[in-house]
Design a protein around this nucleic acid. Structure first.
Lengths: 159, 159
DNA sequence: TCTCTTGTCTACTTATTTTGTAGAGATAAA
DNA sequence: TTTATCTCTACAAAATAAGTAGACAAGAGA
């Protein structure tokens, strides 16, 4: 699972992407519209500033904006930044590899083999979709009967 | 990330798959060969028995074996059993849907849209590969220069 | 039947991670 | 100089994960 913090981060960045080139956005505006605890959001956005994804402006009329055009920020990068890795198992990370505790030697671990393949497949998708992509949202499960989703995101087609 | 417990579970099941139709396997044998804390493994295997994936035999000469042929147990099912869901976000689960706390209405949440697509892609892979599939393991990162992996698993080809 | 081996179950303990909050500072505009 | 903003470190509380204890049940064989 993505942690709550990672989810907040992504939604905050989506919000900034939506406001791209419309001036800075105040923290309180993001917190309110995205339903994120204000104090927690200060921590999150400060981290994003340190990581270079967001630029802040202090003082009166201050706020935040993306440091890059939304099209240059992909979901894979955001998740790697906040969570360290895309992989579902530490030994299958290509960016933050760590050997697992209490495991077999890596060369023998089939779980690792599987998770590496999965990681690569996830990366192929998450590195392709950016904050500029529109994403169509399937209706909630309760109300409907599934799947209107699937498309593969070329240019500006709904995902 | 998959929890340590989920990883132990998968490796224990892989071990039982390897011993399929060779008689029961004692808990201690699994614990030793798979490097899993013995007491913790009792909890894990008891759960698998309750879930119907494993059959146990008590008393002297007792042990465990898979309840089904390895080819009928896919990784997707194992992860769903141990973890509740394949999805990376509770609101994107198709089996254990839950609305996220502090979120937008589901119909407006682009993160959910993205995570649904990702979930379906992960499921397509994890529901196809079973405990009977051989899985080739890429050499550990430290020793080599990446990627010998990728294949898509048809029939009994290495994954 | 007795005993030994092996699995079962419930309840705990401990460690780690996650989620948030407090509060004193820095800075920029008016 | 005042006020609206962001910044930073540290802490607290809650939730989750990992692992252990220990009494119990059951089957095989002497």
């Amino acid at each position: 699972m993505l942690s709550q913090k990672t989810r907040y981060t992504i939604r905050a960045l989506q919000h900034l992407a939506d406001c791209w080139q419309q001036g800075v956005v105040r923290l309180d505006a993001i917190a309110e519209e995205q339903n994120i605890p204000r104090k927690f959001l200060t921590v999150i956005l400060s981290e994003m500033v340190r990581e270079g994804l967001v630029v802040s402006h202090r003082g009166r009329d201050g706020g935040y904006e993306l440091a890059l055009p939304p099209v240059d920020i992909c979901y894979g990068d955001i998740i790697r930044l906040t969570r360290g890795s895309l992989a579902l198992v530490p030994c299958a990370s290509r960016n933050a590899h760590e050997t697992c505790a209490n495991c077999l030697p890596e060369a023998d671990c089939r779980l690792r083999g599987l998770m590496l393949t999965l990681r690569d497949e996830m990366a192929a998708m998450l590195d392709r979709i950016t904050l500029a992509d529109p994403i169509t949202v399937e209706a909630p499960f309760a109300e409907t009967g599934m799947a209107q989703m699937s498309a593969k995101s070329e240019a500006a087609e709904p995902i």
